[in-house]
């Protein structure tokens, strides 16, 4: 897949989900655009090395995540809310209350989850990837993905409950 027509079809198909993943990780439009753009640039240079066409999507997500981690390493880590270990009792959050939250607020909550949990949680919500596929994209063992998902989703649940209980307005991104 090297000519312009093939590339255009690839972009048409994947640029939106890749951007969603990038925005979930960065919560900044410019950074998400850069990550998406960079992912396709890398594809243009190295994509021909991929032999199995069925793995294109996973390859793109893996590349985007790797680029995100690289860019994070170059930056000062941003402060985020440290939560205690998963509380013994998970709070129940009413779906009606969740439905009042907009995208910005949901992503703000995700940004307050431990950073290592953010990518698996974003993939969990954005795509119908299996745990095994998420493990492949993130380059971690299957058990680690399950653990990170449980802990990340648990933290998100707690943050949702706190915000909704406190009636906090959505924080600006």
């Amino acid at each position: 897949m090297s000519d312009s027509a093939d590339f255009e079809r690839l972009v048409e198909r994947f640029y939106a989900p890749l951007y969603q993943f990038a925005f979930s990780l960065t919560r900044a439009e410019a950074d998400a655009c850069d990550l998406t753009q960079q992912t396709f640039t890398i594809w243009a240079a190295k994509g021909h090395q991929l032999r199995d066409p069925s793995k294109v999507k996973a390859w793109l997500f893996t590349t985007l995540h790797r680029e995100f981690l690289d860019s994070r390493r170059r930056q000062t880590r941003f402060p985020h809310l440290e939560l205690d270990a998963l509380e013994a009792e998970l709070p129940t959050v009413a779906p009606a209350a969740i439905s009042r939250l907009d995208v910005a607020h949901v992503l703000d909550l995700l940004g307050r989850v431990d950073e290592v949990f953010q990518a698996p949680v974003a993939l969990f919500y954005l795509q119908d990837y299996s745990y095994l596929e998420i493990a492949g994209i993130l380059g971690v063992p299957l058990g680690t993905v399950k653990s990170r998902l449980a802990r990340g989703l648990g933290q998100l649940q707690q943050l949702l409950a706190r915000d909704i209980t406190a009636g906090q307005p959505p924080q600006a991104l």
Binding site: Q20, F23, S24, T36, V103, Y125, L126
Partner: peptide, 10 residues
């Protein structure tokens, strides 16, 4: 929540 995540528009 899945709906919210998928509302992210490029």
């Amino acid at each position: 929540l899945r709906g919210r995540f998928r509302q992210i528009a490029p």
